[in-house]
Design a binder for these strands. Structure first.
Lengths: 257, 257
DNA sequence: ACACACGGTTCCCCACAGCCGAACGGCTTA
DNA sequence: TAAGCCGTTCGGCTGTGGGGAACCGTGTGT
C-alpha cells in the first residue's frame, strides 16, 4: 500500500516523489537513518543521502541522534494552512461550544481530494473515541460531514466525486451505490442537514450542517455520539438545530473567496 | 531573502528545491496559480505545472478555485511531529499551568538547525504579544530558551552553534560575541536556569529552565513578561523556581531516547 | 586488542528525467 | 470578433540526479 503509481495522466517528477516518500516514512516511523530508508524505499543509500541533505538544508527535517525526523517547521506550516481555509478562531470556538453543550464529539471538516478532511475536532466530556484526527481523511459517502458537503458542492464536482467512489460497506448501513447517495443528497438539501445513521461506524450516529453562501460550500460542522444517546428523534428535534446554529455563526463570520 | 544557496558542501537536488520553494510561496501567499508561481520563482510555466501536478497527486496541495493551496494533510503531519519530540500532553499542561500561575506567556522550545524552535506556547491573561509562534524560530544567543538549551547541549554541538552565529544586536543588551556567550552559559550551568534581560526585545525579560537527563537536553521551558513586572529580583527569587518546577515535571514524564 | 560488521559519506559516470520554449485550448473582457 | 490571460500539452536537448563501489568512523563480539 506504500508505493502505488495511480494517476498516470501526465508525468510526475520522480525525485520529488522520492523526497515525499521519505517524508512519509519519517512521519510514520517517527525517525529513521539512511540505510533504513534506503531499503524501505528501495533506493541506493547515496540517493537517499542526497535527498536527506537537501531536505535538511531546507530545514524540513533535523538530525536527531542516530537518524532524522521531521522538523518543527511543519508546525508553522500547519498554522498557516489552518488560517487559510477559513476563520479558524470562530470555527474552533463554535465547535468547542457544540461539544460543551452536548458533551459529545464536535468536528469541522472540508472536502479535499474527494474525501473529508478534518480541520478541527473537540471531544466533549463524555465523547466517544473515534478514529478521526485533525488532518486525517474519511470517505465522503459514509459520513454526515461528507454527505452534507457533497450536497452543496457545485453539481459538476459532486458528480465527479460521486462517480469516483469505491463504495465499501463499512457497516451494514453504509450507502453503497451512487443512486442511494444521490437520494440522500437530495434529502439533505431539503431538510438542510445530513445524517450518518451508523453508516461509518457501528453504534455511532452523526448530524452535520453545511457552512456555505449561495454559490460555495466551505465545509460542514458535525456532532457525533453513540446511538443510545443519539436517537433518531433527538437528532431531528434537537441536535440538528444545534449544528445548524453553529454552522450559521461560522458562516456569518467567514469571508468567502 | 528567499533564494539563498548557502550551504554548498555536497550537491542538492534541484527539483526537490523547486518543489519546496513552491510550497514556501503557497504558504506565504496562502494560494497561487501556475503563472503567478512561475514568475515569482523564475521558472517556466510547464515546469511549475508538472511540479504542481506531482504535489497534487501526493495530496500535499489542493486545487482551490483558481489556484492551489496547501492541504490539510499538513495538519496530520504536524500532529505526528509534535508527538515525536516529547510528551506533548505533559508539556502542554505544564506550560499552561505556568501561564495561569503567572498570567504571562509561557513557552516550550527545542534546538533545531542552530536556532530555537517553539513547540508550544500559551499566552496568559495579561500576556504581552510577542513575535514567536509555534513552529517558528529565534536565535539561540538572544533568548533565555536558546541560551539555556545551549548550556546543556553536548560540548561539541554547543561549540559548533556558538561559532556559527552572526550575533546581531537586537537590543542594546544583546550578547554579541562568543566570549560573552560562553560566560553566560557557564553562569546558567551554575544556577540551573537562564535569563534574557531585554536581550531579544526591549522591555521584555524571560527565565528558562532546561528539560534534560544526565546526557541529553530535550529542550527548555520559559516565562516571558514585561520588565516592569519581571524585576531581576523577582526572577531570581520566584519565577526561576516556577520554571524549574515545570521543567522537572516534564523531565519526569519524558522518556529520553 | 583486533577484526569484522554496519551505518553514514564521498566520488564518478551515464542514462534519462526534467526543464524549457512554443504552440494550443478555454474563458473572460472590450 | 478579436485580443488577452490563464492552464495545459508536446517534444527535444542537456545536465542532473540516481546507482554502484569504495571509503571512513564507530561499535561489537571474541
Amino acid at each position: 500500500m506504500t508505493n502505488a503509481a495511480r494517476n498516470d495522466r501526465g508525468r510526475s517528477i520522480r525525485s520529488v516523489e522520492i523526497a515525499f516518500s521519505i517524508i512519509d516514512v519519517l512521519q510514520e516511523k517517527g525517525g529513521a537513518g539512511v540505510t533504513e530508508l534506503a531499503e524501505e524505499l528501495d533506493h541506493s543509500k547515496s540517493t537517499i543521502h542526497s535527498h536527506l541533505r537537501t531536505l535538511e538544508d531546507r530545514e524540513i527535517l533535523v538530525r536527531e541522534g542516530d537518524g532524522y525526523r521531521l522538523s518543527l517547521r511543519i508546525l508553522d506550516m500547519a498554522t498557516h494552512v489552518r488560517d487559510q481555509v477559513g476563520n479558524y478562531d470562530v470555527i474552533r470556538s463554535e465547535v468547542d461550544t457544540l461539544a460543551e453543550e452536548t458533551g459529545e464529539i464536535a468536528q469541522f471538516g472540508i472536502e479535499e481530494h474527494g474525501k473529508v478532511s478534518y480541520l478541527y475536532k473537540t471531544t466533549g466530556d463524555r465523547g466517544v473515541e473515534t478514529a478521526s484526527r485533525v488532518g486525517t481523511q474519511q470517505p465522503m459517502y459514509s459520513t454526515s460531514l461528507g454527505k452534507t458537503i457533497l450536497a452543496y458542492l457545485p453539481e459538476e464536482r459532486t458528480e465527479e466525486i460521486v462517480q469516483a467512489q469505491a463504495y465499501e460497506a463499512l457497516t451494514p448501513m453504509t450507502i453503497t451505490s451512487a443512486e442511494e447517495l444521490y437520494d440522500d443528497l437530495e434529502a439533505i438539501r431539503e431538510r438542510g442537514y445530513g445524517i450518518d445513521d451508523e453508516e461509518n461506524f457501528e453504534g455511532l450516529r452523526c448530524v452535520a450542517a453545511p457552512v456555505k453562501n449561495e454559490e460555495t460550500v466551505l465545509g460542514a460542522v458535525s456532532i457525533t455520539g453513540p446511538s443510545s444517546r443519539f436517537t433518531v428523534d433527538r437528532i431531528h428535534d434537537e441536535l440538528s438545530d444545534q449544528v445548524q446554529r453553529a454552522a450559521n455563526v461560522i458562516e456569518l463570520n467567514t469571508k468567502f473567496a
